[in-house]
């Protein structure tokens, strides 16, 4: 008997079932197929303007900084400004996401690089799949154009998100993922990010920048 069979047999013995009961199978299949929502907090709900306002408040509570710009073309200038004001080098790594590729980076003094990080980059920018008003959380997905290393290795992480992609709750992100990848399938990595990296492991003192980014700067693009 394999360990798998032994464990399943032990579970069934403890539960007093055989695994062949049709009603149990139906209940499980139905739950997996329907994926019904449970309780969704009111906090993140409302029209787009309300969601953007709540997202901003919640992200700032989690020590992220948030700025709104009018169009996608304004994002590179905002990132260049942040780096300048923070006395940080004007370097920036990014993936090949078409939303970022369409932005006028050459109009700034930023020295851009492309692809995954090897741990030697100070700054990186990502494009968000969605953002969640409820808790000020960004949702980033991996793929050929979106390296996951950019979300964790650089000291300063910039994330550009369209106001129209700011949803109320996690459940809306799952629906959007199912729309894009199919029911039951997922991107390899989905990163929910709420504020910059932190630790309180030494005397419960909250410190930012434990292993991941020390700063998280979110640029909301109001127009499409």
């Amino acid at each position: 008997m394999s360990a798998r069979e032994e464990i399943l047999a032990n579970i069934r013995r403890s539960l007093g079932v055989t695994g062949a009961e049709a009603p149990r199978r139906m209940a499980v299949d139905d739950r997996l197929a329907q994926a019904r929502s449970g309780i969704i907090p009111q906090r993140g709900q409302g029209d787009q303007a309300a969601r953007v306002a709540t997202f901003k408040d919640e992200a700032e509570r989690a020590q992220a900084s948030v700025v709104e710009v009018e169009t996608a073309a304004d994002a590179p200038g905002e990132i260049a400004r942040f780096l300048r004001d923070s006395n940080l080098p004007a370097t920036l790594r990014m993936g090949d996401d078409p939303r970022l590729a369409a932005m006028p980076w050459s109009a700034t003094a930023l020295d851009t690089a492309h692809g995954a990080s090897d741990g030697h980059d100070l700054n990186a920018v990502s494009a968000a799949f969605a953002a969640i008003a409820e808790s000020g959380t960004l949702a980033l997905v991996s793929g050929p154009d979106n390296p996951t290393t950019l979300n964790f290795l650089p000291d300063n992480h910039f994330v550009v998100v369209a106001a129209s992609d700011i949803v109320g709750d996690y459940e809306s992100v799952w629906r959007k993922l199912r729309g894009g990848y199919g029911k039951g399938a997922m991107p390899r990595t989905v990163n929910f990010i709420t504020g910059p990296s932190r630790s309180a492991d030494i005397e419960q003192t909250l410190l930012l920048g434990a292993h991941g980014p020390r700063r998280l700067h979110i640029v909301i693009v109001k127009g499409a």
């Binding site: 919640e58 509570r61 989690a62 409820e134 808790s135 000020g136 959380t137 997922m186 990595t189 989905v190 990163n191 929910f192 990010i193 709420t194 504020g195 910059p196 990296s197 932190r198 991941g212």
Partner: peptide
């Protein structure tokens, strides 16, 4: 409300 990184 949420930990910083929830990774799937």
């Amino acid at each position: 409300d949420m930990s910083v990184y929830t990774t799937l």
